[in-house]
Write a protein that binds this DNA or RNA. Structure first.
Lengths: 113, 113
DNA sequence: GTAACCTGCAACCGGACGGTTGCGGACATC
DNA sequence: GATGTCCGCAACCGTCCGGTTGCAGGTTAC
């Protein structure tokens, strides 16, 4: 009796967003793209830790790598966030269908890209 | 240079939603409230494991316990989901402000409850 | 060419987390 | 009141995950 349809593409997104450091990184990158060393400079963790987090975010489809010579620049690609919103809309749908309509709007916009 | 405001109330929600079992449970409960033993019967894990997951969800404010005699019934309280949507709207805002408006709509509805 | 800097890979470590089992207590039923 | 069933607590275990360190490979600059 699965209430929400099949397997969720939102899983990787939620897993990626579960870590506070990762959310922080996404937040920073949403303001302006940056390299791993730049990001590590603003955080109390090593560059390698940042790289691992960026790999997680990238695996969820939330980041885009762009190499320019010596360094690699990361930027946000927030499309997968719609999967997460969609899932929540389905769960919250029973409770309030306004979320449903919101989700529909997102889907429509997504198709428009 | 924090791009997203202060500390996030969305953290617990994302952490709760990071686990597939927890998402499954939320999904089931959104369809109809149930007890821990009922939920465990539909899953390949023990009742205690389910209880722990329900505790996580409850800690994120996503569940409500309702005791009736011998057994405890859980139901979904999806309001905290708006925190998660709000956070994503801020991150994705740079990319598309339609999410922002969606978030505003949610906030308005939240105030209306 | 050599020095400085950034990326990438691999090994390693400790703690958190998902899961199990066992047991005691409370409630309903007979 | 005895029994079955459900909840709740606690201990325990293995694995995954976040983090570190060390080192090799490119790339830019001097």
């Amino acid at each position: 009796m699965a209430a929400v349809s099949g397997n969720d593409p939102a899983g990787p997104v939620f897993e990626a967003l579960a870590d506070p450091v990762r959310r922080r990184l996404l937040s920073e990158l949403s303001a302006s793209p940056a390299t791993a060393t730049e990001l590590a400079a603003e955080l109390p963790i090593s560059r390698q830790a940042v790289v691992k987090h960026l790999a997680s975010l990238s695996q969820a489809g939330l980041l885009e790598r762009e190499r320019s010579g010596r360094d690699v620049r990361y930027r946000v690609t927030p499309e997968p966030l719609t999967h997460a919103v969609g899932w929540m809309a389905q769960v919250g749908g029973q409770w309030d269908e306004r979320l449903e309509r919101l989700h529909d709007a997102l889907r429509a916009q997504d198709a428009g890209l």
